[in-house]
Design a protein around this nucleic acid. Sequence first.
DNA 1: CTCTTCACG
DNA 2: ACGTACGTGAAGAGT
Length: 875
Amino acid sequence: MSNEKILLLDGNSLAYRAFFALPLLTNEHGIHTNAVYGFTLMLQKIMEEENPTHMLVAFDAGKTTFRHSTFGEYKGGRQKTPPELSEQFPYVRKLIDAYGIKRYELEMYEADDIIGTLSKQADANGQQVVIVSGDKDLTQLATENTTVYITRKGITDIEKYTPAHIEEKYGLTPLQIIDMKGLMGDASDNIPGVPGVGEKTAVKLLKEHGSVENLYGALDTVSGVKLKEKLVANEEQAKMSKTLATIETSAPIEVTVDELTYSGPNMEAVVEIWKELSFRTLLEKSDFVAEEQEMTELNYNVLDEIDSSILKDQMALHLEMYDEQYHTSELLGIALSDGEDSYFIKGSTAFQSDVFCKWLEDDSKQKFLSDSKATQAVSRKHGVSILGTEFDLLLAAYIVNQSISSGDVSTLAKEFGNYNVWTDESVYGKGAKKSTPELEKLAEHAARKAQAIWQLKPTLEEKLKENEQFALYKELELPLASILGTMESDGVKVDKQILVEMGHDLEIKLQSIEQDIYALAGEKFNINSPKQLGVILFEKIGLTPIKKTKTGYSTAADVLEKLASEHEIIEQILHYRQLGKLNSTYIEGLLKEIHEEDGKIHTRYQQALTSTGRLSSINPNLQNIPVRLEEGRKIRKAFVPSQPDWVMFAADYSQIELRVLAHMSEDKNLVEAFNNDLDIHTKTAMDVFHVDAEDVTSDMRRAAKAVNFGIVYGISDYGLSQNLDITRKEAATFIEQYLNSFPGVKEYMDDIVRVAKQKGFVTTILNRRRYLPEITSSNFNLRSFAERTAMNTPIQGSAADIIKKAMIDMAGRLKDENMQTKMLLQVHDELIFEAPPEEIALLEKIVPEVMDTAIKLLVPLKVDYAFGASWYETK
DNA sequence: CTCTTCACG
DNA sequence: ACGTACGTGAAGAGT
């Protein structure tokens, strides 16, 4: 008996298992990773448990095997390997190589046969063998020395087949498993067996007769007329099936067991693959990486004051805040790093140093930051404007890959291969347990961030240049960050009194509607609870549910509107909802956000969040202040200029997305329509309905408008039918008519999807990217969604590029003209300013001019503007 | 912490 | 046949 242990793995079978057991995961480049990930987990677990001295992973080679000459339809009718899995096999092989494990495949033979041949050899040598597969056929190889592990549900749950276990489970010997397969067949390999004989019958027959051959030698003794008939009719097939199910144990392989020695992984190579595939959990858990992390030396000093000698011409700078809301958060300290040495200065003491403040304001001293907008905003709060922002890790990372999961330095650093930063959560804790750590810990945490920012600059800049996105980052996003920071810091004045009064009115109305609803329902309930409301409407009152959600009846507005004629309670509920929303989100919500000191609201723009390149606005969201309904629109009366007699000035792009579409598709009809400044919805209606301009009814224009929206969103007949409340067929006709009238648009849409499939991403006018891994998915839903996104993102994203460029130009122009006017808000296609009255005339000239010429398109851009005493009046 | 609803472009 | 319009954030309910 040898103390060697041979581990033989069925590579194809395990990769398949992993693939179907785990959800489809992808890395940032859209490569699917779930099979590789699952395979890795299996490998890790089994090696840890078994401690093998020899290892081999066997693969199937090619499509045909010697079994096909016995039976042409062997494995016939099998579904093609999904492309999401096929693309992962090269990585599985690379991974096995990195682990230092031998792998083998052989023309005309399956992985089973390689494993069978080797296990027989090893068995003869008296070596211990463990076979791992997801395929139960392999259990025929079990012997006293050989155990067969078959994966059960999931990826790490395993059933161990020894001869004893097989005896217990089926009452058969391992070799009789072959006979069992011969009789019952195997649907997945298309092995026919004897029709009508399943596992139960097969086992019973084999217990009596021992083997297929013996059974057919003694057919007379088989009880049951039907069964006997079936056996007689399928004798040839049964014998052939047995042959097919038999694993070859003397395949002409060119490796021997002795060559399979396993001497441990090359962890560096393994980690390299993990990084490439973004296996974050494994990387974090890995001792190797942890060691690597420990090995990194960090020279950092905690300073009480700043000495001019530490301030270099280039430095990474990080302001450590207690929480994300940097407008109000406590400043915990400042970290600096020059790549060699790092420093930490507690609290805001650094800002008391003249040397430091001068350094910050010196344009020739380059600062490397992460989230320059936040850094500058906090510094501004301490009376210092940072100049010389040379690098912003957050923005660079976002441009390289829009799907970065979070903005903290640790996450960003990990994303690009730097594991030397602790997560904020591990330092501060989370939820109620969140607290500031002791000084040393805090200092090292912040210093590590500064050092990582320093180290990552070259990596990120190289990637940006490689992708031809350096200009987008350096000339658009980076300068925009400063402008947004100023807008945030300036804030917008909100008249508290107006909101409070509106709130009182709303409360009174709400109470009255509430009473009406209770009376109509015959009982009190929580109107804000869709669950309780559903019970009242669809069970108590007996209305017909139109739509369901995962959790019950849908009570969404579009559903209720269809029921409005059925019962008068519906109208009341819709009104209650509308007013309730105004009161809770906009009155109470906004009141909570007004800063005591200045009576202003300071939203935060998230510049590295959306997948299209738009901004988003939080705490509070000022990009969704009501406008469509008059009752809500009144909220805008509370948004007023910060100085007496000043006015609010708002300018918006008209139809920017359709103009972008005209530009990108170069559709003649659409380009001409904009060049002639036609009403685009009326023009669309004329083409879709084949009527003259004067015969376009308001309904036709409304439908045309919906079609235009649909085109921008990535058209689908279903979506349009829902929006217009028409049948899918009618919607499909509209779309067809549209695409006939605008053939360039159709061509563009087809092209963009094709390009997305080929490259894996789509781009905007300024070369912003969005990766769309799911566009090649075999899942219809995922694929369709990605296709619509491919059509929409270049349009929405290019529109975002344009207004961002306009904001930079606008800020420059206001400065050049020495104006007092302040840019306050951006709402995707509009800019809101506050201005002294004497500057209005100039604004009327320069705002449209600057916005129109931000980026030159094939068609003109059009800007509408208005001004008044409050945001409400800018219409 | 997820789901539903609803506000905006 | 599949079952969806694109992009966001906030509030309230209920697990």
